[in-house]
Structure formats: structure tokens, C-alpha cells
Amino acid sequence: MDIVIERLTKKYGVQRAVDDISFRVKTGEVLGFLGPNGAGKTTTMKAITSYLVPDAGEIHVGEFSVFQNPEAVKKVIGYLPEHNPLYPEMAVIDYLRFVAELHGIDKSRIRERILEMVTVCGLEGEKHKKINELSKGYRQRVGLAQAMIHDPEVLILDEPTSGLDPNQIVEIRELIKKIGREKTVILSSHILAEVEATCDRILIISKGKIVADGTSDDLRKHAQGKEILHLTIEDADKNEVIPALQALDTVDLADLTKGTENRYEVQSRPELSSRKAVYKLCVEKGWVLTEMTPIVTKLEDIFHELTMN
């Protein structure tokens, strides 16, 4: 089920939490929502679940409008809210039953669905415990289990892996990926590695506006633009090396790395790579090339660049 968001705006007082955002998520896609705190991630997610009524804009989940037909939308959405609120005095299994009943799952299938969720989310040992006896990681699993119990077409997860230990994080990511193959998933996070590992597409939002949209490779290319290489060339005179590197066709700028005697930084012209040319040059001149490292722009840098302006 596709999600289409058109010109969504939500104001809190004079501050625009979400400012005229439009995007589309297709079935079989996992969309990662990335942004600094207060960027509008949670607000957008709440609007999709029909919990929050925006000031302007339209949201469609499949064929249903969130504002005209919220009941139909709620049925197909599984939602894990921020901070994962749960009823502390309920036992895990009772809680899952309650949610399953609210979703109108057939009586004969409720047991089977609960057991499946308990298995999938690794809650076998805790299913009869009360929620307030669980650790944060297990509560998070309960939150995920309740979001997925009715096998929803659309999953909205606000920081799904917060509070989980590294092993659990890997498990949950795998689970999300698996679900994402057939369903539509939107998840928010401020852990960049997580978004990179789980999502097909990344949306970076800052101060209520979309500042980047694409796969992690797209974003890298966009931010990086030019290839940068770090070289270490031994048995050569630096006064000879620099002009020779600079003379290569593909090289835009070559210079000695500050504070070193034989390390160089080479920036290529846009869209070109100098790796082969550098190697050939060294062979030709008899220089010993002991290091050639392409510098990968980290998602962190892109994020920083996009959200700090």
C-alpha cells in the first residue's frame, strides 16, 4: 500500500514543526526518516496514523484519505509510537490479546497470531510477565509485537531499536527488512548506521523541511561529488611528485598532506577517478606506492552538512 503525503504542514504556535512536506512511499520500500531532534519526524508520523490533525495538506494510505476515512487507515497501519507507551499492569500476552481484539482479528486466529508474534519478537520467556517487570529492550519488543499483530500493510515505527542491545538490534533490523519486502515501512531514527543498514531510501528532514531524499549511495554521491585519494609514495622527491600528479588529466588538485613528508592528497575532477592514472604514473617513474585510500564521505558528514545550515 502506497503512502502519499502532499503539502503537509503542522504548526505549534508560530513554529512550523512540519513545513509543506510532500513525499511518496511505495509498497515494498523501507523508508528511513532521519533528522535532528525536533525536525518534524514524529509529527509527520503521527499525522500519517491520523492521531494528529495537521493544519494543511493531505495524506493518503492506499486509496484511503487519512482525514476522511481514519478508521479504514487505522486498520491497515501498525504503529509503534515514540517512547513506546504500554499498560504497565498488564501481562504481555493479555496486552497482545487486547490489541488483537481491537483490530478485530478473528477469535480463532487470535491465539495463533499472538504465538507467532511472541516467537518473532523473542518474547517466549516473558509472555506471562507483567509489562512493568520487563527491561526496556523487552518492552520495545512488546511494542513491535503489538504493532505487527494484525499483519498490517503499513508499518510506522518511531525509533524502533531504541533501548535494544546490539544483538537485538541486528535481529529487529533483519525483521524490518523482511517485512519491508512486501509491506510499506516508515521508520525514524537518529542512528545513521541503522538507517543505512535497514532502509532502501533515506529522507533527511530538518526544521520541518525535506533536505535530502534518496538511497544512501545517492546521498553520498550528491554530497561527495569529487573523489579524494590519500596516497603514500616512498622513494620519491616530493617536489617532483606534486607537479607530476597535478599534470594528470583526471586530477583537479594534488598536494602534500600537512605535517607529513610523503603523504599526498589528490582530488579528482568531478565524476572522474584518478586511481589508475596514479598507479601508472608511479610504475613509470619507479616510485613505490605504499598506500592509496579513497576517502568515503560518511553519512554523518552528509547529515551534518545538510542539517546544520
Binding site: 497501519i77 504503529y79 509510537p81 507507551p85 483490530h103
Partner: peptide
């Protein structure tokens, strides 16, 4: 206070 109202109202309930 605990935010469970959000959980409840995003289920198919009026």
C-alpha cells in the same frame, strides 16, 4: 500522562 492514549487512538477505535 503515559502516552497510551496515542496507542489506543491509533487502533481502529473512535
Amino acid at each position: 500522562r503515559s502516552g497510551t492514549i496515542e496507542l489506543l487512538l491509533t487502533k481502529p477505535v473512535r
